[in-house]
């Protein structure tokens, strides 16, 4: 180890649509920096890139936040599970129950059990549906291959994503506040 401990850095980035300054050591895991700001939706499972519980979007792409050092988030646009409703145009501040269709379908289809894998599943599934509005079963499984679940056996997760895809294609708005109309 080298002499003096490096000073902390301030990293300017966007988190869930708002400009943020994250403070910490450059080698600190983005997972920890985000959770320290109170965004505890992002979970730690393995801490080594295997399980996907810590998945966030970095410039729109899913990444394992346990493997990203804080310094590399400079200038990046980050989205955590807390930012998903806004990503689907839901106004969270007006109705705290507003959910992204992917979230709503995980609720209605039983896609979550203990819930530890769920934030990562939701983020990765959202990234998939933003690129592919009509994925096949195999495409959903491939997109979620880096997200492990020890509870559901995956069937209900895949079903939830397929249901969300249908709902998003139909412009369905089940999760939106009533005044948004359906």
């Amino acid at each position: 180890m080298s002499g003096a401990f490096p000073v902390k850095c301030t990293v300017k980035c966007t988190v869930n649509g708002a400009a943020q300054e994250l403070q910490g050591h450059p080698m600190e895991r983005l997972l920890d920096s985000l959770r320290d700001t109170g965004l505890t939706g992002t979970k730690e499972g393995c801490g080594e890139g295997e399980c996907g519980a810590c998945t966030i979007l970095m410039d729109g792409e899913p990444v394992n936040s346990c493997l990203v050092p804080l310094a590399q988030a400079e200038g990046a646009e980050l989205c955590t599970v807390e930012g998903l409703p806004a990503r689907a145009g839901r106004k969270v501040s007006e109705d705290r129950a507003a959910l992204h269709p992917v979230q709503a379908c995980f609720v209605s289809e039983g896609g979550a059990q203990c819930g530890i894998c769920t934030p990562g599943m939701l983020v990765a599934a959202t990234a998939l549906l933003e690129r592919n509005a009509e994925p096949t079963d195999a495409e959903v499984r491939e997109a979620l291959a880096g997200n492990l679940c020890r509870c559901t056996g995956y069937m209900k997760i895949v079903n939830s994503v397929m249901a969300a895809a249908r709902e998003m294609r139909a412009g369905g708005n089940r999760a939106a506040p009533p005044e948004a109309g359906r």
Binding site: P6, H25, P26, M27, G47, P69, A71, Q72
Partner: peptide, 13 residues
């Protein structure tokens, strides 16, 4: 045991 981030340096040329 996890490595301690403050013990490392990461600079960005």
């Amino acid at each position: 045991m996890r490595g301690n981030a403050p013990q490392y340096r990461l600079e960005t040329p």
